[in-house]
Design a protein around this nucleic acid. Sequence first.
DNA 1: TGTATTTTTCTTGTCGACAAAAATTTTCCG
DNA 2: CGGAAAATTTTTGTCGACAAGAAAAATACA
Lengths: 242, 242
Amino acid sequence: MTVRSPAKAKETTAEKTRERKRGSGVQFVYNVLRDEILNLTLAPGSLIDEVQLSQRLAMSRTPIREALVRLAGEGLVTTLPNRSTVVTNIDLLNLHAFFDAITLMYRVTTRLAAQNHQAEDLEAIRARQAEFARAVTDQDALAMIATNREFHAAIAAAGRNPYYESLFLRLLDEGRRLLRLYYQSFDDRLPQEYVVEHEEIIAAIEARDIDESDRLARAHADQIVTQTRAMITDDRRLDITL
Amino acid sequence: MTVRSPAKAKETTAEKTRERKRGSGVQFVYNVLRDEILNLTLAPGSLIDEVQLSQRLAMSRTPIREALVRLAGEGLVTTLPNRSTVVTNIDLLNLHAFFDAITLMYRVTTRLAAQNHQAEDLEAIRARQAEFARAVTDQDALAMIATNREFHAAIAAAGRNPYYESLFLRLLDEGRRLLRLYYQSFDDRLPQEYVVEHEEIIAAIEARDIDESDRLARAHADQIVTQTRAMITDDRRLDITL
DNA sequence: TGTATTTTTCTTGTCGACAAAAATTTTCCG
DNA sequence: CGGAAAATTTTTGTCGACAAGAAAAATACA
């Protein structure tokens, strides 16, 4: 018969899910799927089988479907009506739209943070920056990507505008997926510059210098965008992914 | 291996309600709820009873739940864990964040439309503007609110940036809900100015004049924001809603 | 009478089942 | 063999049922 179990079927997830609190089901599968999608454990374009998932996570299809609806709302999966749902492809053709939007959101959120932040926000931001710096010295590319996201997410939270914040988080996640594609060429080049730039941004926010915050955020974004662009155009895998 | 018996007795249950196509269930209830929420038929803060809804719409709770998850993702309903889900309140305390974001999105989408629009986009935009003008001459406040949204949504679509577009649509919906609160004082004051401003915006987009598009969009947004602010501060109901 | 505690009712979260659509395989006929 | 039609398998959308939490009601006790 057709036994299609992938080689990596050995997962510890099934054991931990024995004792789940009621109501935590969708949240759990949402977190698992989201993580796997952002880490490219689930490759873009790959099919998501509800039954297989329900077996792996030891739960019914209902909470899994609800988690998928949620992920679809955030654009991480795409649901074909009456057909399968797939992990949303990384759209390399519309990258300019992504870069445009994320640059603007970098600027806006940093400006607003300089304007609206409270004392506790700065603490949180500094904590994230410390985690980021640690990831850099550890040369841990995956941790760098994750902590960098959290750093800017903390800045966005300090800006106190939920609308900007939600779009920015979505863009950061998309960027995390994108960077993950190329993180091999990542770990020895960028770190130092980014740590310094982060420190400058923190200083500008603390000083409530809006113009300087904007300038630094824009420079930071440009830096990231050009760097990412270079990675993509350099990399031969572009042809494959298209 | 396992062969189920192919003989199937004719059940009488299937005759009852076979009107909806399979797969249209969640979309249907999503549309219904969304409409009722945006028109304030479902008041902000009101409870949503899944069972009652399933009876009203003649379907099981499953598709209704999935629609609610989708609406929660867009911020139109709020789900309390293990408790009821309610229509999200209109947050009058964070209005400045809303105005800030929608102003920026007005500008950005209009700029991008001037930059990236195709011929067919202009047709669509003009069609929406015609509908808006008709609603104005008809003094139909509800239609005005709806068609105005569609007009700007068409501009955003012409801008070809899905990230901006999705945030803008969300903000326009939120604004639709807000205006709906005060539409009584709405129908005799604003119309003429807005029709003219819309025409100017179309001209600027067609001329691909980015700076002018930005200027007009900003003025248009400011106009709407100050007008809305005036309505809110004028209105005594503010105290009640808080 | 007022408050704490138990019991009952109600609502939600999850499950297994089944029918409809799509995908796949098999059969049929040239 | 080759391709079209039919049959079968797979997968998705929907349903009714049931148990766990929470809310409401009832009871007990000071």
